[in-house]
C-alpha cells in the first residue's frame, strides 16, 4: 500500500460523515422516548377510583430487596383484619432499581416509573421518599408497565379489578405509546401533552406525587389550599405541600415568574431559556 493511502482512505470515510445528520439528543431540551416499563424509581400504586394505596404492608418487597432500602412500619388494623401502613420509605440513594420488589409484590401495589432526574443536595432528607411522595395512579397504562416488569407472576392472586392490557396491547406501534409513557411519569407529563396531563386521571396522581417539587413548595405554599381534584383523589390526606407543587401547565415563556419556572420540568425550562434568549436577540447555539 502506498504511503498515505490508508490515511487518506480513513479520512475520506470520516469526512463522509460530516454530511450526515447527528444522532445526538439535545438533553434536556429533548428527551428520549422511554418505554413505560422503564425501571426508574419505585412507585406505590393507588386505585384511581378510591384513591387508596394497594399496599397491604405485607413486607414482601422489603424482603426481596437486595440492598435493603425499603423501610416499612405497620400496625394491626383495629377495625378489622389486615394491617395499616404507617410508613413506607424508599432510600433512592441506595436503590439499584433492580425491580425485584415489583416482581415480589403479590398485590400489584408497587411498580417502577421512568423517573430518573433525582439530583438533590441532601442525601438523608431529599432522597428518602415516603409513601405520599411515591404515590402513582394505577391507570391501565401504568398497570401494563407494572405487569411487564413483573414478568412471570408467581403466586399472583387476581385483584378482581379490570384486567390490565398486556404491554403489547397498551403499546400498539411506535410513537403513540411512548407518549403515554411520558405522561405517566412526573417529569415529562407536561412536556409531551400539556392538555392531556391537565385533565387525565393519571396526571392527577402524578401531580400529587411529584416529589422533586415538594421541598421547594413546602415553604412557598403552606397557605395555599389543595386543588379540589387532588383532595378527591386522596381521601387519606397527603401533605398539601406536595399537592400544591404541581407545576403550571399553561405558561408564557417570557412572563413566567422565577418561582414557577423552578417548578417546571427540565424540558420546559430549556424551552423557556431558549425563548428568553431569542427575545433578547441572542441566537441559541446551533450545530453546523
Amino acid at each position: 500500500m502506498a504511503l498515505g493511502l490508508g490515511v487518506a482512505r480513513g479520512m475520506l470515510s470520516t469526512l463522509s460523515h460530516l454530511a450526515k445528520k447527528p444522532i445526538t439528543i439535545q438533553y434536556p431540551e429533548e428527551q428520549m422516548e422511554m418505554p413505560i416499563w422503564t425501571r426508574g424509581r419505585p412507585r406505590l400504586l393507588f386505585e384511581v377510583d378510591t384513591g387508596e394505596l394497594r399496599c397491604t404492608a405485607c413486607g414482601a418487597c422489603a424482603l426481596a430487596c437486595p440492598v435493603d432500602v425499603i423501610k416499612i412500619e405497620q400496625h394491626p388494623n383495629p377495625a378489622g383484619k389486615g394491617k395499616v401502613l404507617d410508613r413506607f420509605d424508599i432510600d433512592m440513594a441506595g436503590c439499584i432499581e433492580c425491580a425485584l420488589c415489583v416482581e415480589a409484590c403479590p398485590f400489584r401495589a408497587i411498580t417502577m416509573a421512568p423517573d430518573f432526574e433525582m439530583a438533590a443536595y441532601e442525601r438523608s432528607t431529599e432522597l428518602v421518599f415516603d409513601m405520599y411522595q411515591l404515590r402513582l395512579a394505577g391507570t391501565p397504562e401504568v398497570d401494563a408497565g407494572m405487569e411487564h416488569i413483573q414478568g412471570v407472576k408467581r403466586g399472583l392472586k387476581s385483584q378482581g379489578g379490570a384486567a390490565a392490557p398486556t404491554p403489547a396491547a397498551a403499546k400498539p406501534a411506535g410513537a403513540p405509546a411512548p407518549a403515554a409513557a411520558r405522561t405517566a411519569g412526573p417529569v415529562a407529563g407536561q412536556a409531551t401533552g400539556a392538555t392531556a396531563a391537565a385533565t387525565s386521571t393519571s396526571a392527577t396522581g402524578n401531580q400529587v406525587a411529584d416529589p422533586k417539587a415538594a421541598p421547594a413548595a413546602a415553604v412557598a405554599s403552606a397557605n395555599v389550599p389543595a386543588p379540589a381534584h387532588v383532595s378527591d383523589a386522596n381521601p387519606a390526606g397527603p401533605p398539601p405541600a406536595a399537592a400544591a407543587a404541581a407545576p403550571p401547565t399553561d405558561f408564557d415563556p417570557l412572563t413566567i415568574s422565577d418561582e414557577d419556572l423552578a417548578k417546571l420540568p427540565a424540558a420546559d425550562r430549556g424551552r423557556v431559556y431558549k425563548a428568553r434568549l431569542k427575545a433578547k436577540g441572542v441566537q441559541p447555539p446551533t450545530r453546523p
Binding site: 500500500m1 504511503l3 493511502l5 490508508g6 490515511v7 482512505r9 480513513g10 470515510s13 470520516t14
Partner: peptide, 12 residues
Amino acid sequence: DEYESVLTTNEI
C-alpha cells in the same frame, strides 16, 4: 464495513 474502512485498512 464502516469500522473496517477506518481501522482495518488504516496503516497507522
